[in-house]
Design a protein around this nucleic acid. Structure first.
Length: 581
RNA sequence: GCGCCUAUAGCUCAGCGGAUUAGAGCGCCGGCCUCCGGAGCCGGGUGCGCAGGUUCGAUUCCUGCUAGGCGCACCA
C-alpha cells in the first residue's frame, strides 16, 4: 500500500469509535476503501463511511463528522486539513511533507522503489511462450511471451523466486508430421544451409499435401508412435529439429531480453507419465470409453479428460498432468501460472480438476492465466493455413520504422540501430500489454507501428527527455545524484504547484499499481499507469521551467523521482529505457 | 445443445471486492512564446448492449436476454 493510504488508514482505525459488541470494524479493510476524490478541491484522499453505517448503526454523515472532529482534535502535522462532506471524510495532505516522504523514499529505494517484498521466500513457476517446435515462430506467440516476461519481472520484483519455464511443444503428432515431411521432401543441403527456412518449407508442404492426401496424417501419427517407442532414426531426426528450433527461439528471445530457466517441454515428460497414470488408476478414476482411456469428471460438470488414445499413446492432457506433478515435486511452488491462450480454458480446468479429484490439494496454487487471441485482418492467426506473420518480422519492421524516425528527428544520435531496436521492440511489447489480457487484439501493421499517443515510445520518449534535462543539469554544475541525500537542504514548500502535487501523488501510488498487477496477474494496470504518469509529467514539464528556476534543486529532485519510477516501470514491462532516442 | 470470454465516445480501449460530476489514445477541427527534445503540450465530448434484481446509491454485484468470439474425445 502507498505511504499515504497506509498512514491514513492507520489513523482512521485508531480514531474510529469502538463498534457495538460483536461488530468488528477491523474486519473492514479500511485502506481499500480510501480513494481519490473526483476533484482535488475536495482533498487528496477520501474515506467513504457508508459501508460502516450498518456496523455503527449511525448515519454516514454523522460517522464522517465525528471521525473528522476526532482526528482534528489532535491532527498530525502531515495532514493539512480533514473535513467531513456528504458522508465522506476528505483528507488534505501537507504537501511539502508529502513531497518529502515520497521523494526521499524513491531516492533511498531507487531501483527497488515500488516493491512490496511480499513474495519473499516464495517461489512462483511461470510457464509461458511455449512454442511448438514443429510450427513457425509466429506473432500469435507474442502475447504469451510478452505477458509471461512482464509477469516474471513483476513477481521477481515483489520478492518471489521466479522459475521461467518454456514448456516446449516438442512431443506429439505434429512432430510426426515433420518426420514424414522430411522423409518425403527433405533437402539435406537446404537444411544445413538455412535450417529455419527448410523446416518451414517442410511444414507448409506437409499441410498442403495433407489437404489432398489425408492418409499423410495417419503416417504422421504412426511416425510419432514410432518416436514414442524410441525408434532410433526417428529420434535422431527429432533431436536435430528440436535443437535447431531452440537455437532459433533463443536468438529471438534475446532480442526481447528474455531468458528461460527451463526448456523442459512435453518430451521431457514422455517418461514421467507412468506414475500419473498409475495414480489415477489406483484412485479408480480411469475408465475405458470408445477404446480410449479417460477420466470422467461428471460430478464436476466437466467433459471427461482423455488420458490415453485407443492405440495406447499419450495425449497433451497426460503430459500436462505429469508436468503439473513434476513442478510440484521439483519446486514446491507457492504459485504456478500457465500463460496460455483462452482456448485452452477447458483443458486446464480438466487438468486441475483431475489432480484435485486425485487428492492433490496443492493444485489450488495452479492457475491458468488466459489471454485473448490475436486476430489478423479479421482472421484468427492460423499457422496452418499459411497466413503466417513471423514474430521476428514484427520486431524487424518495428525496429526499421523506429530507425527511420530517429534518422529524421535525431540524426546526430550515436548507436542509432541499437536505440531503434530498443524503441521498436518496446513499441511492440507495450502494445501487447496495454489491453486487459482477456481482450482480443486485432493485429494490423499501422497500429503496431504507430509511435504516437498511448504507445511504448511515448513512455520511452518521456524517459529520454527526463534523462536529457538531468544530464543538462549535470553539465551545468549540478550534482544530481547528491540532491536529496540530505533532505533538510531542500525546501519542499517550493513544490507547491498543483501539477507538482499531482505528480507526487502519481509517484506515491506506484507500489499500489504493482500490487494490483500482481493480484490480477495482468501488467495492464502498470502500462496504463506509466502513460498517466507521463501525461502528468509532460503537462507539468511543459509549463514549469526547471533549470534556472528558484526551485531548481527541488524540481530536479522531483524529476529524478519520476525518472526512477519510469525506469522501474519500463523494466517491469520488459522494455528497454534508452537515455536518448 | 452445454460451457467459458467479451460488450463503455465514430474507432481502439482504461475505469482495482460499489460511492460526490465516467476517462485516455486514435481520427477530425483549432492553437503552442527564437525558452530544459514537437515521438511533445493546450483546447473542442448529448457514450456504459437490453430487461429485471439487491442497495441510501450500480458502468461496477446477481439473474435473464441479445450480439460477437472461443471451447466441448483420441490435435495441442
Amino acid at each position: 500500500m502507498g505511504l499515504f493510504k497506509a498512514k491514513i488508514a492507520e489513523l482512521i482505525k485508531e480514531k474510529l469509535p469502538p463498534a457495538s459488541p460483536g461488530l468488528d470494524p477491523d474486519e473492514v479493510a479500511l485502506g481499500d476503501l480510501l480513494e481519490a476524490p473526483p476533484d482535488p478541491a475536495y482533498g487528496d484522499m477520501a474515506f467513504p463511511t457508508f459501508s460502516l453505517a450498518r456496523t455503527f448503526r449511525r448515519a454516514p454523515a454523522k460517522i464522517a463528522a465525528d471521525l473528522a472532529a476526532e482526528i482534528n482534535r489532535a491532527r498530525p502535522d502531515w495532514l493539512e486539513k480533514v473535513e467531513a462532506l456528504n458522508g465522506y471524510v476528505n483528507f488534505t495532505l501537507n504537501k511539502p511533507l508529502a513531497a518529502r516522504s515520497v521523494l526521499t523514499a524513491i531516492k533511498s529505494e531507487g531501483r527497488r522503489y515500488g516493491s512490496s517484498g511480499a513474495g519473499q521466500g516464495r517461489k512462483v513457476v511461470i510457464d509461458f511462450s511455449s512454442p511448438n517446435i514443429a510450427k513457425p515462430f509466429a506473432v500469435n506467440l507474442l502475447r504469451t511471451t510478452v505477458l509471461g516476461q512482464a509477469l516474471s519481472r513483476l513477481y521477481a520484483f515483489q520478492g518471489y523466486e521466479v522459475v521461467r519455464v518454456n514448456h516446449l511443444g516438442d512431443w506429439g503428432t505434429q512432430n510426426g508430421q515433420w518426420i514424414v515431411g522430411y522423409r518425403l521432401w527433405g533437402d539435406e543441403a537446404a537444411l544445413a544451409a538455412n535450417p529455419i527456412k527448410e523446416l518451414l518449407r517442410l511444414y507448409i508442404r506437409f499441410h498442403e499435401e495433407a489437404e489432398k492426401h489425408p492418409e499423410l496424417e495417419d503416417q504422421a501419427r504412426e511416425a510419432f508412435h514410432l518416436l514414442e517407442q524410441g525408434d532410433p532414426e526417428a529420434l535422431a531426426l527429432w533431436k536435430r529439429f528440436r535443437h535447431l528450433s531452440i537455437e532459433e527461439f533463443k536468438r529471438v528471445y534475446a532480442r526481447m531480453g528474455i531468458e528461460f530457466d527451463s526448456y523442459a517441454g512435453e518430451a521431457f515428460y514422455s517418461d514421467k507419465m507412468e506414475p500419473v497414470i498409475r495414480l489415477l488408476q489406483e484412485k479408480g478414476m480411469l475408465v475405458e470409453s470408445e477404446g480410449a482411456t479417460v477420466a470422467p469428471l461428471d460430478e464436476y460438470n466437466l467433459p471427461p479428460c482423455l488420458i490415453l488414445k485407443s492405440d495406447g499413446s499419450t495425449l497433451y492432457p497426460t503430459r500436462d498432468l505429469a508436468a503439473a506433478l513434476y513442478r510440484w515435486e521439483q519446486y514446491q511452488p507457492a504459485l504456478v501460472l500457465y500463460v496460455v491462450d483462452v482456448r485452452q480454458s477447458l483443458h486446464f480446468q480438466q487438468i486441475f480438476t483431475v489432480l484435485k479429484k486425485a487428492g492433490m490439494s496443492w493444485v489450488d496454487r495452479y492457475e491458468h492465466i488466459a489471454y485473448g487471441l490475436i486476430k489478423f485482418q479479421d482472421m484468427i492467426m492460423s499457422t496452418r493455413k499459411g497466413a503466417i506473420v513471423f514474430l521476428e518480422d514484427v520486431l524487424d519492421e518495428a525496429a526499421n520504422r523506429s530507425l527511420e524516425i530517429i534518422k529524421e528527428r535525431n540524426p546526430d544520435l550515436p548507436d542509432k540501430e541499437k536505440v531503434a531496436e530498443q524503441v521498436g521492440i518496446g513499441a511492440i511489447i507495450f502494445r501487447f500489454l496495454i489491453y486487459s489480457r482477456l481482450k482480443e487484439i486485432s493485429f494490423d501493421w499501422q497500429t503496431a507501428l504507430s509511435f504516437d499517443g498511448d504507445t511504448g515510445p511515448y513512455v520511452q520518449y518521456t524517459y529520454a527527455r527526463l534523462c536529457s534535462i538531468l544530464r543538462k543539469a549535470g553539465t551545468e554544475g549540478v550534482d544530481v545524484e547528491k540532491i536529496g541525500e540530505d533532505p533538510s537542504c531542500l525546501c519542499f514548500e517550493k513544490l507547491s504547484a498543483p501539477e507538482e502535487a499531482a505528480l507526487i501523488f502519481e509517484l506515491e501510488r506506484f507500489p499500489d499499481v504493482l500490487i494490483q498487477c500482481e493480484a490480477g496477474r495482468d501488467p495492464v494496470a502498470l502500462a496504463r499507469y506509466l502513460l498517466e504518469l507521463c501525461r502528468v509529467f509532460n503537462g507539468y514539464y511543459h509549463q514549469h521551467r526547471v533549470m534556472g528556476s528558484d526551485a531548481m534543486a527541488e524540481r530536479l529532485f522531483l524529476l529524478a523521482g519520476v525518472r526512477t519510477v519510469l525506469q522501474n516501470g519500463l523494466y517491469l514491462l520488459g522494455m528497454s529505457a534508452p537515455e536518448e532516442m
